[in-house]
Structures are given as structure tokens and as C-alpha cells.
Nucleic acid binder design. Structure first.
Lengths: 199, 199
DNA sequence: CTTTTTTTGTATCGGTCACTAAATAACTCC
DNA sequence: GGAGTTATTTAGTGACCGATACAAAAAAAG
């Protein structure tokens, strides 16, 4: 209602590209997790000094929130695509898990999922809440999407898929190769394919 | 070959129970992960001062190594039991995954698996190497155990089971309830049950 | 121009990290 | 007893953590 985007009417203009800074920060968070990246490291990677970072994003967590939103909007597209283009629950789950396995090992310097693993063992409760909120949103989305294809309890199906994705993300972070992840994803999906009470 | 256990022949005797200290440290590491527990916190929980900890264990990583060994010897027994008592590959996998789901949510204040999640996003490469070494040993053990029941490539089966367990551990750490974990474990096992070329 | 607003860099804050030098305390051996 | 050995404590190291006070710099508004 007030000002969603400051148009910079007066005062010294910002010396760095704000959205590019978010993407750089996102890359670092994906590599090392929230606790693994320091404000000093972030500032240096962004080519600015810590006070500029705090002026632009409030604090480290504020920058993380924007990075997570960018991540969900860009790297998370495969979720909607895999589920939306499916004609059955089994196809949706299969597409999703295979796409997740592919996505989690695409960038080899930052494997796994930021939402599922970016704040694991993290001491900052705000950062954990940020990823957990996104995880719950994903679960809700999957539950609704699955319900288009089935009258079953799609909540437990969403739980299952997210736990499988957690395994794939964790394995990717451990360095497991693409073929191994894909093999596991196919087995995870096969467990659903054999269930026959789909409609 | 030299001295595996110092019998304390001379000098001031230790004022604390060394193996009890390892168990206390293990509990903290399970709760917070390696990076989440500090030497000061460990010392206070053990009722000693940091120099006593360093005198007894060398450094934080030395204490972690002993904690991991204790964990593997006690909390990891279910792996051998689940696999050893099985009469088929399918039964071994099913027993193992269900037992893992139970184990990962048994202690509600320290859910998940120390080996699989204790050093995630950890900055200490030695600590990561310690858990990764244990993970590889487990994979090798499972591969051999599975090969007693199948002529298939049991290496990829061990990979699959470990990735599934990684998902269960991560979900347990996120606070997923026992029933959810057990449901996912049954589905993970069902994917193997349907594969028919077991023997 | 001056005033106002916003961003910038310099320098630093208090706190925590893993770790340790040095002195003392408690034990065995002689 | 004294000598030797080991564990203990006190006190503190330098490095890093997230976050900031302050003033100079750079823009728009009057």
C-alpha cells in the first residue's frame, strides 16, 4: 500500500545492482548453507562493504529471504512443471522425483536443495523458519496438485515425495553422482506406480 | 601395538568419567550437529574446563570421533540386526528402512542420524570426513549383506537404501512424526518388493 | 548556492570460536 | 620425605561472528 519499490527519488544512488547481489548471495548460500556464509564473505563477493549490505537488506537474514525467494521462483519452477504436465498421480510423482534428481545435481558446485538443506544444523531460528515455511508451502502445493489426480489422502503422498526429495538433496550434497540420484528417484517413484487405488 | 588403554599408572587421576563424557558429548552432537556445539558448551556439560577436554581428547574433533564411534556401536546396531535376520533382499530392505524410521524418531530431542546429518553444512572438513567415512563403511556393509540374498548389483541397492535413510533422517530432523516416517519407509521398501528379479 | 536525503567507506563494537601457556594439584615411584 | 608424572584450573590468545556509529560523498529539492 505504501511503497513496494523505492524509486530512488532523492539521495545518493545505490552503487551496486541489488538483484545481481541477491543472485550472488544465493549462489553462496547454496554452496555453503546459511551458517556457512558470513557477512564479510557476502560483502566481499558483492563488491561492497558490510554497512552497504545492511542498508540494502536490513541484515544477513533479510538477504537470505530474498535469495530464497529468488531460488524458489527460478530453480523451483520444475516442481510446477513436472506436476502440471502430468495426467495421473503416478506420472506426477515420477516426473517430479526425476526432475528433482536432475535439478539437485545440475550445478555441481552447489548441489542439493537450498530449501531442504540450506539451514540444516543451522543455529539461526529465523533462517530455519524461512526455509521451513517454503517447505510447508511446497507440501501444500503438492497436496493440492496431487488431489487433481486422486481421491486418496494426498497429504501423505506429499509427505512421501518431500521425504524422498530430502534424501535426494542430501545425497547430492554428499556428492552422489547423477546416475545414482536418478536410479533412486526411479525407485522412489516405482513405489507409487505399484499402488493401484489411484482414482 | 603400543598402549591401547592407558591404565593410569602414575600421575594425577582423571576427575571425570571419560566414557560418560563421550556419551554426554554424543547427545549434544546429535542435538545440534558438529558445528552447533562449542567447546565451551561441551566442557560445561561435562563438568570440566576446556583444557581438561583437550588433555583427554586432543581437540573437538577427537571427541567427536569417539562420540561417532560410540553412536555407531550402540545406535547403529539396528542395521546389522535388521539385515542379518532377513531371509531375502526384500525383507532385509524392509526391516532396515522401518527400523531406521523408528530409530530416527526415538529420541525426540535429538532426531535423525548423526552419521547422515551431523556434519551437514559443516565447515570442518575433518568432521565431515569422519561421518562420510562411516557412511561409506555402512554402504559397503549393506552391499555385502544384500549380496547374500541376490545376484543383482547390490551396490546400487545399498545406494538406494542410504538415500532413503537420508530422507528419513532429514525429515526426522525437520520434526516429521513417527507415523509419517514409517509411512515413507514402507513406501521406500515397497519399491523393492515389486522388483521381481531378486534371486 | 544551501538543505535534505540516502549511500558510501572507515573503523570498530561486544560476543563467540577453537585452542593454549603457565601454574597448581594429585597421584605413583623411589 | 622428594622426584617424576599427569590432570587440573586460571586466564587469556588471535580470529572470526553479525552488526553499527560516524562522517564523507553523491544525488534531488528549494
Amino acid at each position: 500500500m505504501t511503497d513496494t519499490k523505492k524509486e530512488h527519488t532523492r539521495g545518493r544512488p545505490r552503487c551496486f545492482d541489488r538483484s545481481a547481489a541477491v543472485k550472488t548471495a544465493l549462489s553462496l548460500f547454496r554452496q555453503k548453507g546459511y551458517d556457512g556464509v558470513g557477512v564479510a564473505e557476502l560483502s566481499q563477493a558483492l563488491g561492497i562493504k558490510p554497512p552497504s549490505l545492511y542498508a540494502a537488506f536490513g541484515n544477513k537474514h533479510g538477504l537470505f529471504v530474498e535469495a530464497v525467494r529468488t531460488y524458489a521462483a527460478e530453480e523451483g519452477k520444475f516442481i510446477g512443471e513436472a506436476v502440471g504436465g502430468a495426467n495421473s498421480l503416478e506420472e506426477a510423482v515420477t516426473n517430479l522425483l526425476i526432475a528433482a534428481a536432475e535439478a539437485f545435481c545440475r550445478c555441481k558446485d552447489q548441489p542439493g536443495c537450498l530449501i531442504l538443506d540450506g539451514t540444516r544444523n543451522c543455529m539461526d531460528s529465523n533462517a530455519r523458519a524461512t526455509t521451513e515455511e517454503m517447505r510447508q508451502e511446497t507440501k501444500t502445493f503438492l497436496k493440492k496438485a496431487f488431489s487433481r489426480h486422486s481421491s486418496r489422502d494426498t497429504g501423505e503422498m506429499a509427505d512421501y515425495v518431500l521425504i524422498a526429495m530430502t534424501g535426494l538433496s542430501g545425497a547430492a550434497r554428499q556428492g552422489e553422482k547423477r546416475e545414482v540420484l536418478l536410479g533412486a528417484a526411479r525407485r522412489f517413484a516405482a513405489a507409487i506406480l505399484q499402488e493401484e487405488d489411484s482414482q
